[in-house]
């Protein structure tokens, strides 16, 4: 006698087939993940906050001071920091609080624009060199080798002598003319490395179109390296400008920069140390913060650093 087996007994009540494959949490995008890792880095976060404050002051500082950076007050020269003049005044009685932030604009612009321009050129150059490889790569890298073997500061000094005019644009040109070489090398190396990865080979084997490979694999991999390189380049440009201005080859009066402020104050540091220390502190602080930020970004953007 056969027992009747009800159909209900055969219903699946256990885990569904695709249950194991289910992603339990919302997908974390690459940038969100990087941001989370970045925020865990306290030093880098602090550097970012300080840079934010500096940027705010550079933009709004001259207005807050209530003085124009060119306004002279000959009755009140070399005054120490006080309630009227927070950072004191210089030898022509100009308010240093206004001048420091005005000078910061020049330093920051040079740092940011210089780093972006040179990395833009470097990316294109390095990208072409790495992507095409072979003979093109050989010739292009020889050129970079020649350019890179001439000391950077010599090139900058020479160009600022030759170009005569010492405006912001000329300074930027002088500093970026060989400044892109470093990034070009980095980008080329990265492109070559990505090109030879197995997942790129796999993508090619699966018939993925070249532009999609570039978009999905090459650019994201190069981008993180470039962002880090830009961050490390910015202090280099700020230093370069300060160095030139310090030697009298940079920004000319009445305009000013942190390097120029430090240079003017340097001759009288024994009597008015605050005139030197404030711009010097700004340069050092900005360079320090960008370097620490770069360290943090490198750790955050590189997925291989993940623990």
């Amino acid at each position: 006698m056969q027992e009747e087996i009800s159909k209900e007994l055969f219903q699946i009540i256990g885990p569904e087939d695709n249950e194991a494959e289910k992603i339990a949490r919302p997908r974390v995008s690459y940038l969100r993940d990087a941001w989370r890792r970045f925020r865990q880095n306290k030093v880098a976060t602090l550097a970012l906050i300080i840079l934010g404050i500096l940027a705010f002051m550079v933009i709004f500082g001259p207005a807050i001071s209530g003085y124009s950076f060119e306004e002279m007050d000959t009755t009140n020269r070399n005054a120490p920091p006080s309630r009227e003049h927070w950072f004191g005044t210089d030898k022509l009685g100009r308010d240093l609080f206004a001048r420091v932030w005005q000078g910061g604009r020049v330093s920051m612009i040079i740092g940011l624009v210089g780093a972006f321009v040179s990395s833009f050129v470097g990316c294109i150059y390095g990208g072409i060199s790495g992507y095409f490889g072979g003979r093109v790569d050989d010739i292009m890298m020889r050129i970079v080798e020649v350019l890179i073997s001439v000391p950077y500061l010599i090139v900058v000094i020479l160009l600022s002598v030759v170009l005569k005019s010492k405006s912001l644009g000329t300074l930027l040109l002088a500093m970026t003319i060989t400044g892109w070489c470093g990034i070009a090398r980095i980008v080329r190396g990265q492109v070559l490395q990505v090109k030879s990865q197995e997942y790129v080979l796999a993508a090619q084997a699966l018939g993925v179109k070249p532009w999609k490979i570039i978009l999905r694999h090459v650019i994201p991999n190069v981008l993180s390296v470039v962002i880090v390189a830009i961050t490390f380049d910015i202090p280099g440009y700020i230093f370069g400008e300060a160095f030139l201005s310090f030697l009298g080859l940079g920004i000319q009066p009445p305009n000013t920069s942190w390097g120029a402020l430090a240079a003017t104050a340097q001759s009288m540091y024994a009597f008015y140390p605050y005139q030197l220390f404030i711009p010097a502190l700004m340069i050092a602080l900005t360079m320090l913060c960008f370097t620490l930020l770069g360290d943090g970004l490198r750790d955050a953007l590189d997925p291989r650093q993940r623990k």
Binding site: A242, F246, Y269, A280, A284, M287, L288, T291
Partner: peptide, 17 residues
Amino acid sequence: ILGTTIPVFVFASLLQY
């Protein structure tokens, strides 16, 4: 990090002072 970020002339002025 200080050594790579502090410009030479800043360090020199501080020492001189």
